[in-house]
Computed example of a mutant assay.
Amino acid sequence: MRGKPVPKDERTEPTRVDVTIDPKAHKIDRRGCITQDNIVGMRRVFNVGRRNAGRMAELLIDHGQAVAADLETGEILADQTLDATREYQYRKPANDVNDAPRQM
Rank of each mutant, 00 (worst) to 15 (best):
N95R: 04
P101N: 05
Y90R: 00
R2K: 15
A69Y: 01
P93Y: 13
P93M: 15
G54E: 06
V67K: 12
F46A: 14
G54Q: 03
D9K: 13
T35I: 14
G54A: 05
Q80Y: 06
A100E: 10
F46P: 02
A78W: 06
P23C: 09
G74L: 06
P14V: 13
Q89V: 11
G74W: 08
Y88M: 15
V45G: 04
P7F: 07
F46L: 15
P7Y: 02
D96W: 09
G32D: 11
D79L: 00
F46R: 12
Y88K: 14
K4N: 14
I61E: 02
R16D: 09
P14S: 05
R30C: 08
N95F: 11
L71E: 02
R2I: 12
L71W: 02
L77M: 07
Q80G: 02
V67D: 04
R43P: 13
I28A: 04
Y88A: 14
R102P: 00
T73Q: 05
V40T: 04
P7V: 10
G54V: 07
K24A: 11
K92N: 12
A68M: 07
E10I: 00
T15E: 04
T20E: 08
Y90Q: 13
D99I: 03
G49W: 13
V6C: 15
P23K: 13
D99R: 08
E75F: 05
A84P: 09
I39E: 00
E58Y: 10
I34N: 02
V48M: 09
A69I: 08
H63I: 03
G3V: 10
N47E: 15
L60S: 13
V40F: 09
Q36P: 09
M104N: 07
D37P: 03
C33W: 11
T20A: 02
L82A: 08
G49V: 01
D29E: 12
T20Q: 04
R44H: 09
P23H: 12
D79A: 04
P5L: 14
M42R: 14
N52I: 05
D9W: 13
R86S: 08
R55Y: 03
A57T: 00
R102C: 10
M1E: 02
Q65P: 01
L59G: 01
A53H: 06
A78Q: 10
A69N: 02
R55V: 10
Y90G: 09
E13W: 03
R30H: 12
R102W: 10
A100T: 07
M104I: 13
Q36K: 14
D37L: 08
E13R: 00
L59E: 01
Q65G: 01
R43K: 15
T35F: 01
R11K: 15
R50H: 10
I39A: 07
E75W: 05
R11W: 05
